[in-house]
Design a protein around this nucleic acid. Structure first.
Length: 260
DNA sequence: AGTACCACCTGACGGC
DNA sequence: TGCCGTCAGGTGGTAC
C-alpha cells in the first residue's frame, strides 16, 4: 500500500519508536535492496549512530543520521516497518534490521523485494536526481495546474506520474478522482481550470483524511471508494455498480454515473 | 510525449 | 488437497 499516506504513517511510526536511539547492530538480510551504497558502507553508516530526524517526500522516507548523511527508504508495493523486541517477532520478509541499545529492533520489510534503500548526503539532490516534483501535500495550486494543463494523456496517468505531485499511487488516485467526480480516463485537455481546482482540493482533503485514519482503509468513511476495491464485491455507491478497467496499465475503479 | 509491454519478486486467490 | 494461471497498492527500461 505504500503511497504518500502510508509512508507518512511509517514516518510517524518511526518517530514514535526509533528516533534518537543508538543503533548497536545492523543486520542486512538481503543486500539486493540496497541502491547507491555498498553493504559495508550501509552498515558502517548506521552502526553506533542515531536516527536523528525523519522527513518524507512523496513515497520516500528519509532519515538523517549525522551531519549530511541520510538513509532513504522506498517501500515498493509491499513494504513496511515494524518495531519489536523479541527475536521471535521478527516479521517474515525482513530485509534489514536495526538493533537498538534498548533491546528493541526496527525491521524494514519488503515482501516482493521491490522496495529499495538508498543513501544520500542531500535530500534535495536526491529528489532532483529521481526527478520528483513537489510533494502532493506541499505543491501549490499554480504549479499543480501548470503541470497538467498541457498534458495530452489521461487525468489518472498524469496524477500518478511521479514528476507531477509526488506521492500518489494507484489507490489514492482512484479515490481522489472518485470524490472529485472525474473519470480516470478523461483527457487532461478536457478539464477546465475549475475542474483542476476541484481535483487539487480533493487531493489535499483525501490525503489528509486518510493520514488521520492511519491509512487503514477499514477506518475510511463509508463514502470512500477504497474499501470497495474488490472484484468480488463491486458494491454500488449511488445505486450504480462500480466499474473497473485498465487506465494507464493500472486497474482502475470508478463510478460510471457519479464520475463524468 | 504518451502508451504498451516487460521485468523485478512473492503471496493470495479462484478455478479446476 | 493441490496445481496452475492471474493478479496485486511501484518503478524503470525499451520499443513504437
Amino acid at each position: 500500500m505504500p503511497a504518500l499516506p502510508d509512508v507518512e504513517i511509517f514516518r510517524q511510526y518511526l518517530d514514535s519508536t526509533s528516533l534518537h536511539q543508538q543503533i548497536l547492530k545492523v543486520a542486512l538480510l538481503d543486500r539486493s535492496i540496497l541502491r547507491k551504497i555498498s553493504p559495508d558502507k550501509f552498515r558502517s553508516a548506521l552502526k553506533g549512530n542515531l536516527l536523528r530526524k525523519s522527513t518524507r517526500h512523496g513515497k520516500y522516507l528519509f532519515v538523517r543520521l549525522r551531519g549530511n548523511n541520510f538513509i532513504g527508504l522506498h517501500f515498493g508495493m509491499s513494504g513496511s516497518l515494524k518495531y519489536y523486541k523479541d527475536k521471535s517477532e521478527m516479521p517474515a520478509h525482513t530485509r534489514t534490521l536495526l538493533q537498538f541499545r534498548n533491546g528493541y529492533n526496527l525491521a524494514y520489510i519488503s515482501v516482493r523485494k521491490l522496495g529499495r534503500v538508498f543513501a544520500t548526503d542531500s535530500v534535495e539532490t536526491f529528489v532532483e536526481s529521481q526527478q520528483l516534483g513537489p510533494d502532493a501535500l506541499s505543491i501549490d495550486f499554480d504549479i499543480f495546474l501548470s503541470v497538467f494543463q498541457d498534458r495530452k494523456g489521461t487525468v489518472k496517468s498524469a496524477l500518478m506520474n511521479q514528476p507531477a505531485p509526488a506521492g500518489l499511487g494507484n489507490i489514492y488516485t482512484d479515490e481522489i478522482l472518485f470524490q472529485a467526480g472525474v473519470r480516470p480516463a478523461r483527457k487532461c485537455s478536457q478539464l477546465a481550470r475549475k475542474d483542476w481546482e476541484t481535483v487539487y482540493h480533493t487531493m489535499r482533503t483525501v490525503l489528509k483524511a486518510v493520514i488521520k485514519r492511519g491509512a487503514q482503509s477499514e477506518r475510511f468513511p463509508g463514502s470512500y471508494l477504497t474499501p470497495h476495491r474488490d472484484r468480488r464485491e463491486k458494491r454500488p455507491r449511488c445505486g450504480t455498480r462500480l466499474k473497473n478497467k485498465k487506465v494507464g496499465g493500472r486497474t482502475t475503479y470508478y463510478c460510471p454515473s457519479h464520475q463524468t
